[in-house]
């Protein structure tokens, strides 16, 4: 059905082109306009530029204003406020340049369209102008860059000592979320230990791993620094939390990180947006195969007190699955048993 429609459409288009073409060649031959330097179409084209300028300008402003709240993802991190501000400053600066240059670009064709009795100005150069429009953009860009550089240095500096650690491991096609437990230190890992019951390849012969646990949801406290430790175990992935203005690739063999401070709990954001369904989300932004578009995790931002309560309730890997420690050395096993009994 579609095929037929498309075929008809194409046929129609071709025949229209053909007819327009035949008619207008004949007309131009009759009028003798095919020998002129600039035909009557010159005026039409010049007009079109102005029409385009006005039409698309109106469309752009209308849509940008009308949709403003829709295309701006709600913001929920401290550094995000800075990068958003940089974004909008850059938008203002480039917006002005965009408009000025386009007004000139589309108005000149109208103003200076061909007239037989006019001669173009012979104006091959002007060093002063060239210097001005090299130096001015240089200064403007330098200012923008300095702002960006400061923000970037702050964002990428080492995380505060007290940051809550969460490990995100990307694999085809999901994220494994691992918490370090009460000691806030993740246990060691080795990719060779990976199997169906040990997704992150945790090395349980490291004592720090004993209280590590996983969670289907990334739970983090509001107002306190959180450090994402990011790994991948098969191909590249990338952690993207749009509301946190956070993105960092997950690279096999090279752990990466990103720290931030969330500013609003999920509940607060729900109230603010008047949307009881709202969730903070994590997506993957580095192509990783068939399921790339479905690597979703939810971030649940809660009050610090609630976070601590939640943390205390979680059961470590080894509690949920004691088989994980079966092959450990006797001393290690003993330590593990203690942890397990603590959590009973």
């Amino acid at each position: 059905m579609y095929g037929f429609l498309i075929a008809v459409g194409i046929l129609l288009l071709i025949s229209i082109i053909w007819m327009v073409y035949r008619i207008q060649t004949l007309v131009s031959v009759v009028k003798g306009s095919d020998k002129k330097v600039a035909s009557g179409s010159n005026k039409v084209n010049a007009m079109m530029f102005v029409l385009f300028l006005v039409g698309s300008g109106v469309l752009m402003f209308w849509y940008s204003i009308k949709e403003f709240d829709n295309y701006n993802p709600p913001l929920a991190s401290e550094h995000g406020a800075v990068t958003d501000q940089l974004f909008w400053i850059t938008m203002a600066v480039t917006g002005v340049i965009f408009i000025i240059t386009h007004v000139l670009l589309f108005w000149f064709p109208y103003k200076y369209q061909y007239k037989e009795d006019r001669k173009a100005a012979f104006y091959p150069d002007n060093n002063k102008l060239e210097v001005i429009w090299t130096v001015v953009p240089a200064i403007v860009l330098a200012l923008l860059v300095i702002g960006g550089w400061k923000a970037w240095s702050d964002i990428t500096k080492p995380a505060p000592e007290n940051a809550h650690v969460v490990e995100l491991l990307g694999y085809q096609f999901a994220w494994e979320v691992r918490y370090p437990g009460m000691d806030n230190v993740l246990g060691a890992n080795d990719y060779r230990l990976t199997n169906a019951s040990n997704v992150s390849g945790v090395d349980f012969s490291d004592k720090n791993a004993h209280d590590d646990f996983n969670s289907p949801v990334v739970v983090i406290p509001k107002g306190e620094p959180v450090l994402f430790k990011i790994r991948a175990r098969d191909v590249l992935h990338s952690v993207f939390a749009p509301h946190m203005r956070l993105k960092m690739d997950a690279v096999p063999g090279m752990p990466t990180k990103f720290w931030f401070v969330a500013t609003k709990t999920t509940e607060e954001m729900r109230a603010e947006l008047n949307d009881p369904e709202f969730e903070y989300e994590i997506a993957c932004t580095e192509v990783c195969g068939k399921g790339h578009f479905s690597m979703r995790r939810v971030i649940n931002v809660v009050e610090p007190a609630e976070y601590r309560k939640w943390l205390a309730e979680q059961k470590p890997y080894i509690v949920n699955n004691p088989a994980l420690v079966e092959n450990l050395s006797p001393e290690m096993k003993e330590l593990a048993e203690i942890t397990i009994s603590e959590h009973k």
Partner: peptide, 16 residues
């Protein structure tokens, strides 16, 4: 380059 294009159009006798 952009500014130079614009100035080339300025006071030209443009044939489209």
């Amino acid at each position: 380059k952009v500014f130079n294009y614009l100035t080339t159009l300025w006071r030209g006798n443009l044939i489209f």
